[in-house]
Computed example of a mutant assay.
Amino acid sequence: MVKNEIVKRAKNAGMFSVQIDSTQDISANDQCAIAFRYVVGDRAKERLVRLVNVNNSSDKCLHSLLQNSLAEIGLTLSQCIGDSFDGAANMSGVYSGLQALMKAARPSHIHTWCYAHVLHLVISDASSECVAAINLFGLLNEMCLVFNDSYKRMKVWEEHMQTKTGNKKRLRLERIGQTRWSSRCRALRKLLGNYADQSSELFSDFLIILQDVSEATDFKGSVRYEAHKLGENLRKFETILMAFIFIRIFEIIIPVSDYLQTPGLDIMQAWRMINKATESIEKISRDFNDIYETACGFVVRANYKLEVKIFVPNSFSISTSRSSRSAPEHITDKKKIFEVLYHNTVIDAVLSSI
C-alpha cells in the first residue's frame, strides 16, 4: 500500500529522479536500494521504493535492473529527469556508466555526483594519506575492540566510570566503520572532546584503565601486553597531535555532511555551505601552531589525572608515508617536518578532494 502511494505520487508529479546505491549485507549479498525523489506541491519528497539483490554490478546490468523495476510499477526511464549516484565508474562513468545509459533514454537527463559520497571520499583519502593517520584510526579501532570484545575488561571500565560519574552509563568508543566515516569523528570526539573544549574527554580514563589492566594479575599475559602497548601508543604526543588535526577538519565538514542528508534541503544553501567549508579549511591549512598549542594544553590538563605522564617531546618520531615522500632537505626541525609531512599532507588531501 505504501509503495503504491509512492508510485502514484511520482506518476502525478509527471517526472522524478532516482537514487541508487548498494552495499553488502551481513550474509555477504549485495543489496541495491532504489529511491525516488519527486515534488508534491512545493515540497521535494524522497522515498525508498525497492531493495533488490544484485548479482552483477556492471553498468548494463544495473541499467536493466532499474528499467525492469520501473516497468513493474508502470514507470519508464523517459520519465526520469535526473539521478544521484556515487563516483564509481560503473555508476557515474561519462561514456559507459549507468548515468550515460540513462541519458540515452532522455538526453536532458541530469546526473549529480552525490556530494555526501564526495565527502566520504575526502575523509577516506585523508585518513589513509600518511602513516600517522593510518596508525591513529587503527589505534582507535584496537581500543574499541579491547574493551567491547571482553565482558571482563568492560566490567573494569564500567566500574571506573561509575566511580567517576556515579552511574553505570556505558560510555564506549565507537568502532570505526569503512563506509560510515562519521564514526571516526564520533570516536575522536568521544576520546578527546571538541577542538575548543576538551572537558568531556575520556582520554585520561582510557589510559588509566589500560594501565590498570596491564598491571592486573588476573588477566592473561597477552591481554596485559596488549593493554600496555595500546597505552604506550595512545600516550604518544604525535598521536594526540594527529587526532586534533582530524577533529579540526571534522568540525568543519560534519555540519555540511549532515545538511546534505537532510530531507528537502535547499540546493543553494548546500553549495554555500560547501564553499564556506572549503574556505574554512583553506584558512587553517597552514595554521599548525594553533593545533600544536591545543595539543600541548590538552596534555597539561590530562597529566593532572595521570600517574604515568605524557611528555611533549623536543623531537618527533617521523615515519615515511605510503608514497615515501620526505620533507625538503633544508628543513631539519622535527616539529616543522611533522607539520610538512603530516599536517600539510592531510589538509592538502582534503582540499584536493572536496
Score class of each variant (00 low, 15 high):
residue 104 A to I: 10
residue 102 M to K: 03
residue 206 F to M: 05
residue 240 I to D: 01
residue 169 K to H: 12
residue 256 V to F: 07
residue 14 G to V: 04
residue 13 A to R: 00
residue 300 V to S: 07
residue 75 L to R: 03
residue 30 D to F: 05
residue 295 A to G: 02
residue 257 S to K: 04
residue 115 Y to M: 10
residue 331 I to L: 15
residue 69 S to W: 03
residue 273 M to D: 13
residue 172 R to N: 11
residue 159 E to W: 01
residue 289 N to W: 05
residue 84 S to Q: 07
residue 221 G to N: 12
residue 13 A to L: 00
residue 211 Q to T: 11
residue 31 Q to W: 07
residue 303 N to T: 02
residue 148 N to S: 15
residue 279 E to M: 08
residue 6 I to Y: 08
residue 147 F to W: 04
residue 295 A to M: 03
residue 63 H to Q: 08
residue 47 R to T: 03
residue 79 Q to M: 15
residue 97 G to H: 09
residue 18 V to I: 15
residue 195 Y to W: 11
residue 117 H to R: 08
residue 261 Q to G: 09
residue 114 C to L: 06
residue 212 D to W: 02
residue 338 F to C: 04
residue 142 E to Y: 02
residue 31 Q to D: 06
residue 73 I to Q: 01
residue 246 F to W: 10
residue 291 I to Q: 03
residue 87 G to H: 07
residue 180 R to F: 10
residue 55 N to T: 12
residue 263 P to N: 06
residue 52 V to P: 05
residue 275 N to H: 13
residue 115 Y to T: 09
residue 299 V to E: 04
residue 286 R to E: 11
residue 197 D to N: 13
residue 181 W to K: 06
residue 304 Y to P: 00
residue 282 E to Y: 11
residue 342 Y to A: 03
residue 91 M to W: 11
residue 8 K to V: 01
residue 106 R to P: 00
residue 153 R to G: 05
residue 264 G to N: 14
residue 288 F to W: 11
residue 258 D to M: 11
residue 144 C to W: 14
residue 231 G to E: 01
residue 288 F to D: 01
residue 170 R to F: 09
residue 317 S to I: 12
residue 245 I to C: 14
residue 153 R to I: 02
residue 253 I to L: 15
residue 152 K to M: 06
residue 277 A to R: 06
residue 289 N to S: 13
